[in-house]
């Protein structure tokens, strides 16, 4: 067994993952609390890696906390902050500490974050990092040397099914499959018809796809995401639903929408599972699952 998450992916049942955002600082109380709330309700928990290029407690630190609390972590690794030596070294460390799942990302650009003058590394990209995972598994490193003790990971990547134009994204998706990605977590999806068409295409590849569910916490946030976040399109009817929700019940409406989408994806077996991103409201993940009837 590589990991309980990999077993879940291969079980054929609908897989649930969610994510934990580490704190900016050393106060881990809230992160521990979120892990405690969610860990038993999901198959695995991602830990973001300086999400949006904002410096935080590291992804691997969050993964170790999940391990200590009895959960199953997915280590998110971006190529923005480390060169190939540091990335490989961190994979070795992760493996020795029982972390068995890794999500390989290129990473957001430095200037979108809070250390705008920093050097973006990008020595590798996501598809090269995936190949690096597989290389380390073979007992070799990128310099061609033998490892004294190899690694074994369930490795995944991301895809943006609603990007425009879609063709370059699909070419990249296929490169990631060839590089050894076993699972994909998608960028937020809201238009299920369009996502179903993407899944018809993705089904031809031997990978598991978890649809990205981002909690809409207000009509304003939904509009903002549609207008500003690459590859996210929130249909107008969802924005309308949030705008007419009575004051104080908007979040509940967002939870209901997320739950409804998850349940539709599951009922029609559109994809292999979902990845729930509550972005700053991790405490409501159990409510989203309850709304989905899970």
């Amino acid at each position: 067994m590589v990991s309980s998450f990999k077993d879940a992916l291969n079980s054929g049942r609908f897989v649930i993952t969610s994510e934990i955002a580490p704190p900016k600082g050393t106060n881990l109380e809230q992160m521990h609390h979120h892990i405690e709330l969610i860990r038993d309700k999901v198959d695995a928990l991602n830990v973001t890696d300086h999400q949006s290029s904002v410096m935080r407690f590291p992804s691997i630190g969050g993964c170790l906390a999940i391990k200590e609390q009895g959960g199953e972590p997915i280590l998110q690794m971006t190529c923005r902050d480390r060169n190939r030596l540091a990335l490989q070294a961190e994979l070795l460390l992760a493996y020795t500490r029982g972390i068995r799942n890794v999500l390989c990302l290129t990473g957001d650009a430095v200037p979108v974050g809070d250390h705008k003058e920093a050097k973006g590394v990008f020595d590798l990209d996501s598809s090269q990092l995936l190949r690096t995972v597989r290389l380390l598994e073979s007992g070799k490193d990128m310099g061609g040397s033998d490892l004294d003790g190899a690694v074994e990971f369930c490795a995944g990547a991301i895809v943006t099914p609603e990007a425009q134009p879609i063709e370059p994204q699909l070419a990249k998706f296929e490169k990631k499959v060839e590089a050894g990605a076993e699972f994909f977590q998608t960028q937020a999806i809201y238009d299920l018809d369009s996502f179903s068409r993407f899944m018809e295409y993705a089904r031809q590849f031997p990978v598991k796809v978890l649809g990205g569910i981002v909690l809409l916490s207000s009509a304003r946030m939904a509009k903002y995401m549609t207008e500003n976040v690459p590859g996210i399109f929130v249909p107008q009817n969802l924005i309308d639903e949030l705008s007419v929700a009575p004051r104080g019940e908007v979040l509940a409406k967002g939870i209901e929408i997320a739950g409804r989408m998850i349940s539709a994806l599951k009922k029609d077996s559109i994809c292999d599972g979902v990845h729930i991103m509550a972005i700053g409201r991790e405490e409501v993940v159990p409510d989203i699952l309850a709304a989905a009837g899970i």
């Binding site: 923005r80 957001d108 650009a109 990008f122 598809s127 990007a163 994204q169």
Partner: peptide, 10 residues
């Protein structure tokens, strides 16, 4: 980002 294998998700 100087990527050589296609676009990022951004």
């Amino acid at each position: 980002k100087g990527l050589v294998n296609g676009p990022c998700g951004g």
